[in-house]
Simulated assay, not measured.
Amino acid sequence: MTALGAVRRALACTLTGALLVLALGGCVTVTGRRTAAAHSPRTPSDESVGLARPFPSLPAVALAPVPDGYDPSADASAAIDRALAAARRDGRPVLVDFGSSWCADCQAMAALIRTAGLHQVLARNYHLVTVDVGRFDHNLRLAERYVPVEVSGIPAVVELAPDGSLLQGDNEGRFADARTLGADQVADVLISWLYPRTRNDD
């Protein structure tokens, strides 16, 4: 066997072994190999150095309920209080979506929320509360704490910290034309709210 043939055979064996590990064991990490001095005693941890190990599993995340409509009979203040209490327990912020079922853009937002990707972003990262504002004649005093819905239009979405303070507002009415938005666009905004840029990021 030539030297080139030996190299090819060694490479083929290495690739076959790697594929077998992936097929049988799934994703693995390979730790670095330490070189111990000849006089250093071996320890139990030395035996595992260089061996492939499975990735540690990520902890499960309890998904929060994600409403997709506006209930005019709901006690909106109590719903926000419950969401804030849950936020204080798990640290996730609260989203409040002000809208109404007569509004076509609010219906569009509700449809976007039902899409798998956006629904997952909300369920894993936020506590969502939907608040009915009627024809700008219902829950307005509550809405005015966070956003002037008569100016911004609806749907209007705000983000609250677990202590109830306003983190992000929708004064520009970025969601009021929800019929022109895709689920990915809404998800991008909500993810950017989770990880706001700072001056040091620029």
Rank of each mutant, 00 (worst) to 15 (best):
R179N: 12
P148T: 06
V186P: 06
T43I: 05
R88I: 11
A23T: 02
T35E: 10
G25A: 12
A110G: 15
Q120C: 12
Y146P: 04
L128M: 06
A6F: 10
R141A: 14
R8K: 10
G117D: 14
F136N: 00
R88F: 13
D71Q: 02
D97P: 05
R8H: 08
R124H: 13
L63A: 15
H119W: 05
Y70F: 14
R53C: 01
A86G: 13
V158G: 02
R92W: 09
P72F: 01
N139D: 02
E144P: 05
R199S: 13
P93R: 00
D177R: 09
E47G: 01
A111P: 05
A52Y: 08
V94L: 11
L190C: 15
R135M: 04
T29P: 04
E47S: 00
G5K: 06
D188F: 10
R145I: 07
S152Y: 05
L118V: 11
A10C: 05
L118K: 10
T130N: 08
D132E: 03
T130D: 03
V129S: 04
Y146V: 00
A62C: 04
D188N: 13
P59T: 01
N125P: 06
T29H: 10
I191H: 10
R114Y: 01
S101P: 10
L142M: 04
C106P: 03
W193Q: 09
P72Q: 00
R145P: 07
T31D: 06
V21K: 06
G26R: 07
S40Q: 11
A83R: 10
R199W: 14
A85C: 04
P56S: 12
G117A: 15
G17V: 03
A187Y: 04
S165D: 04
C13Y: 12
V149P: 06
H138Q: 06
V149L: 03
V21S: 05
L4I: 02
P148M: 04
P196H: 03
P59H: 01
L95T: 09
P56V: 14
V94R: 07
A123T: 14
S192D: 14
N171V: 11
V131G: 00
G17R: 02
R114Q: 11
L140F: 00
L15P: 00
P41V: 01
L112H: 13
R9Q: 14
